[in-house]
Amino acid sequence: MEESSVFLLCLTANSGVPLYCRSKSSKQLTFSVIGSLNGVHMFANNQDVLLTSTRTENSRVLWRTFHDSINLIVMSCESNASDHSLNKLLENVFSAMVLVIGLDDLMNIKNVERLKKDFRACYKLIDSFLTESEKMGDLTQCVDCVIAHDAAILQECLDGFTQAAESEFGCLLTGGKVVVATEKWWRLASQDAMLLCWLVSSLSPHSSRDYPVYLPQGSPTVPHRLLTFQLVPGVDVCVLCGPSPSLQKVESELVERFWKPVLDPVKSCLRVQLRSFPASVPLHHGILGILLVNQDLNKSLYTVQVHPTEDMQRSDMKCILEQRRAALRSFYTLAMSRYFRPDHHDGKRDKRLGGHPSSEEKRDPHLMKKWRPTKANRRRKEMWWN
């Protein structure tokens, strides 16, 4: 098996029926291996033993059960894999499934074949957690951000645009990283805000979307609407709202009105996408990567291209960037798992994924209006999956 192989399995907890299998490599696990991995976990449960992880000579396997309904298994052959990082992966994957499908359908599985089809909507988001990227929110559980020159101008424009769209939850994204966001966007649960950004960056580019989403921490059973609009290729503005306004109204009346006057500052966001901060900020040449995390604000700044001008001149840059990403992620994982208090994975903690709306969401009439995705929305959604 390849050293970079990572396999993710999803099965029903009661019967062990495979729902999907995703892989970082082109290879797939055989049915016998899938059955063995699930069988040893079920055998342990029948003996009142909680099996969470094990190691072999060249691989590491973790099991997690969510809400006594969904079993997730991850097997990694990567040398830098750890229980901490793989547990974060399983949490992110289940939360991604809640984000797109909703908690009710995951807790009460009535039709396995229908659920398998629904999971197709999650594949791109789940696959993004299996591959290294220019973001670290999957590990830090904070929102990846960039620092732009014209942040004040963009913030003012975003606040006006979001208010005109009858919402108070909005953000401006470049490459899946937040440039600016409204005050209430930052009051969302950090995992919810992180997942929304990853969802937008995982989808194929589109001029506009009306996407039904559930908030795993804030509203796992009642969907909201995520409206996204591509201002320029690589830069999107997002609004989280209730039943109104319509996508057509926002796109035809508000996007051009608010964002056309600031087109140059919007385009400038692309120049800081990879470095995450302006080139005018000098750094020592010995610094190859940076990760800054503010847990109080749920924000992080991450880059392994501190000197993009010099890096572009190197022919083997792709391989070098992969090595930097792996080194920085391994260092962060080591520091968090060894020197900070680890998370406890006793099964009970997973119940918080079905928690109640936050106090901010309870007070906001736009988000708490009950809204259900229409057949037309579902059809549009299926078009984006393919």
Results as ranks from 00 to 15, higher is better:
M1G: 03
V6L: 10
C10E: 07
L11T: 07
R22W: 15
M42F: 15
F43M: 13
A44N: 04
N46W: 09
E57V: 15
E57P: 08
S76T: 00
L86G: 02
L90M: 14
V93S: 10
I101Q: 05
L103Y: 12
D104E: 09
K110D: 11
R114D: 10
D118M: 12
D118I: 00
R120K: 14
C122N: 01
M136P: 01
L139E: 00
T140R: 11
C157Y: 02
Q163D: 06
F169Y: 15
C171V: 01
G175E: 08
V180T: 12
W185R: 01
M194Y: 12
H206M: 06
R209M: 08
D210V: 10
T228Q: 05
T228A: 05
V235D: 00
D236S: 10
V237E: 00
V239K: 04
P243T: 10
K249Q: 11
E253V: 14
R257K: 14
W259D: 01
V262H: 07
G289S: 11
Q295K: 13
L297G: 00
S300M: 07
Q305H: 08
P308N: 02
T309M: 04
R314T: 10
R324V: 07
D343G: 13
H345C: 09
K348W: 13
G355Y: 06
P357S: 09
P365N: 05
K369P: 02
R372W: 12
R380D: 11
